[in-house]
Write a protein that binds this DNA or RNA. Structure first.
Lengths: 235, 235
DNA sequence: CTAGGAATTTTTGTATACAAAAATCAACTA
DNA sequence: TAGTTGATTTTTGTATACAAAAATTCCTAG
């Protein structure tokens, strides 16, 4: 599942992974500028592979490039996030419905292992890895459906949305609830209750949406005249 | 809807559009190699913007890049196409359900105009533009849903699948059927029968899938030992 | 004639150099 | 002081040059 130190990849692939990683963990925040020269120095390469990586990440929706103005970490509005979460509901429920009857003991065990990693991360308040673990857990549940194209789309959707879910974890009790829900979801899979699992998954994703909406409302109240800060990504 | 001679775009954007266009029209076929140098000469630029364009198209699923081996036009197996068509069913039906009640007379008129273009293209056996027109017609119906993110995803899915649907048009009576179905779909929208329209859309996409499966079976029978030809893209 | 393997050619990957656009800053004017 | 203009700096866009990998050719041995 992990393509670390596999083969000596091209610098472009290296840069793509490195930048994607830093965005997913939240190290580089929403709207933060991605200066080619800084990235190049930071990763020890020239700007050429950096530029190719940024183009790729743009097509993945993680980066926004403006002509002659450079790249920033993509920033989604609440309605846009809601849209993507609704797409996730459609795709993930459909896939889970097919996956559950085919899940082997090994599939369940893999998901369970990830759930343990998850728990540890939560205990250590390791917010950075929350997003990655969340996506991995979900994808582990779906793998048995044997629909790799669909799974790839779902993974991209997670990459685009999980950052926003992750934000709330620090502040709310959402983390425990999400964990409980993950456990319950896994139990439903174990008992081969595909329909129940899909229905519950739907609620699980919609809960994240609700929490996000609440958080945004609170933010809006706190900052009546929202002044855009300028996050940077120094070399 | 068309961004032709809008502003002097970057060469990368130009190259991306040009290559995407040629893939969508079928000018460059499945598995065809995309030589950087040839493309660069053909488009009158250096290889740098070409490479960036190819990276972007790879993330869009239209191109497959292999390390040190270059890029080819992406090639989907039948199961992969079926997967993507199923995703299309989920997304497009969901969006159409929301779009129909909001469609204005102008929305309907726009779709109708595209349907006329469509008819002309069919009469002239202009297969090349079939894919583009098909995608445009579908997207016109969904626009009223005001879900731009979802529409962008649907557009990408069309870009990846329409080529394969287009292939059959020459050989079968599929073209007329597709046209009839489009007309009927539009009528259902006009009468504000959202549920009926969504159900019909579902069948419409699944018909394309059936036709495709039949075509693949026939192909498999015709070429028992399939010998891979090597399509090229000369400069 | 085929198999294998060096030499050659082609093609891709990356760095550097330079041009063009945007951003920043400074001086100047009203 | 606020705003405008023009020089300066920073940053992006593209071409060229060169290195590395792959594909091809051609030669030789069996």
């Amino acid at each position: 599942m992990n393509d670390l130190n596999d083969t000596p990849q091209s610098l472009t692939a290296l840069a793509t992974d490195a930048i994607r990683q830093r965005i997913l963990t939240g190290e580089w925040t929403d709207g933060g500028q991605l200066r080619q020269d800084a990235l190049a120095r930071q990763l020890g390469m020239s700007r050429v592979p950096i530029r190719e990586a940024l183009r790729q990440l743009e097509a993945e929706g993680l980066v926004t490039i403006v002509e002659n103005r450079g790249a920033v970490v993509s920033q989604l509005s609440l309605p846009e996030i809601v849209e993507l979460l609704r797409v996730r509901v459609l795709l993930e429920c459909d896939v889970l419905l097919e996956a559950v009857p085919r899940q082997t003991a090994a599939d369940i065990a893999a998901a369970e292992a990830l759930l343990i990693d998850f728990e540890q991360a939560l205990q250590q308040r390791d917010i950075a890895s929350w997003g990655v673990l969340n996506a991995r857990f979900h994808l582990a549940l779906y793998r048995a459906a044997e629909r790799p194209q669909t799974l790839a789309l779902i993974e991209q959707l997670h990459n685009r949305t999980d950052r926003y879910t992750r934000m709330q974890i620090l502040l709310t009790d959402f983390s425990e609830r999400a964990h409980d829900e993950h456990c319950r979801l896994l139990t439903l899979c174990k008992t081969k209750d595909a329909i129940g699992a899909a229905a519950f998954l739907r609620q699980h994703i919609l809960h994240a949406e609700e929490a996000l909406e609440a958080w945004y409302c609170q933010q809006a109240r706190a900052l009546p005249a929202k002044r855009g800060r300028k996050p940077r990504t120094p070399g």
